[in-house]
Design a protein around this nucleic acid. Structure first.
Length: 295
DNA sequence: ATCCAGGCCCGAT
DNA sequence: ATCGGGCATGGA
């Protein structure tokens, strides 16, 4: 991998095991727009980028060299060796082969903690397009204006301090429904420091999950998404309706199996790489509707 | 129209 | 410990 400046563009060259569309569209991320010409506008860490891919080149417009190096390369997890991860997983269990072959270009994004926490609280019992809309609405209303590209405006997700001024009623106005008090509880805990990124990073996976599920509206599924997508605990294995169906289909002949049993199997099969396996399986299985309508 | 969505809470067993 | 109803809102 090499970073070069070419006019007003920054190009990251020689990227392997990465496909920008697969990575953004696999359901781990809600704060981006699909633009013309296969470009994406992505917002994270109070900045935005216009990014597209040509083969093994990743092309950034409207970004400085520093931003690409310090924000976007870590964000897209480009410094990690995914060939090793895939090899490890396939040696453990070749049932993953189709999913990995099909979704070869997914990387797990390193997203901002408080945005992911609130986004996945919103996500419960919702479809991805609606989650995206609410994240966009919150950002437009309470986040900083960052800039625009071909008439698409970009807004940062509100900072933790900005969440303070959002009331339960405000959250309801954003169409979050019964999740409004959950979002308020999370906002309060972020503001008083009882939930904190560095703290959760330092106490390890098990205790981080415990802490996260203390928040109203955060159960095991949401906690594991937060843990996987923003805390870097790549052993996390979020189990939602989809991954439950998919695992039942692949490993249990479409029988009904408890989430506990699925979690146990995932841990045994994939160990510390569970999060990667989950994302390959989730994205492929959802595309294929694996296990749907078989009961 | 009815059902369900990247679930979770809460009360009843 | 486990099960089921209820929950806001919108799309299929």
């Amino acid at each position: 991998m090499e970073v070069v400046k070419n006019g007003d563009k920054i190009i990251v060259k020689d990227i392997k095991d990465f496909d920008i569309a697969q990575t953004l569209l696999c359901g781990q991320c809600f704060h981006f727009d699909e633009l013309n010409d296969n470009k994406f506008g992505v917002v994270a860490y109070s900045t935005y980028c216009i990014v597209s891919q040509k083969g093994s080149d990743l092309i950034f417009e409207k970004s400085s060299l520093n931003e690409v190096k310090n924000i976007w390369i870590p964000y897209f997890d480009l410094e990690r060796d995914y060939a090793f991860i895939k090899k490890y997983l396939l040696e453990k269990d070749d049932k993953l082969k189709t999913a990995i072959d099909e979704k070869w270009g997914i990387r797990l994004l390193n997203q901002e903690f408080h945005e992911i926490l609130l986004s996945f609280i919103i996500s419960q019992n919702k479809q991805i397009p609606h989650i995206k809309k609410i994240v966009k609405d919150i950002s437009e209303k309470y986040g900083e204006y960052l800039g625009e590209y071909e008439d698409v405006k970009f807004y940062a997700f509100p900072e933790i301090e900005d969440l303070n001024k959002i009331t339960v009623e405000d959250y309801r106005e954003l169409k979050t429904g019964f999740r409004a008090p959950y979002l308020k509880d999370a906002s309060d805990k972020l503001n008083d420091g009882s939930i904190d990124f560095n703290m959760l990073r330092s106490i390890g996976y098990d205790k981080a999950i415990e802490k996260l599920t203390d928040i109203k509206g955060v159960g095991l599924k949401v906690a594991n998404c937060v843990s996987l997508f923003s805390l870097g605990y790549r052993n996390s294995f979020p189990i939602d309706v989809w991954i439950k169906r998919i695992m039942e289909h692949v490993y249990f002949n479409d029988m009904d199996v408890s989430k506990e049993e699925i979690a146990k199997l995932a841990d045994k099969l994939y160990g510390n790489f569970g999060g990667y396996a989950q994302q390959y399986l989730f994205s492929y299985g959802k595309d294929m509707s694996l296990g749907k309508d078989v009961k």
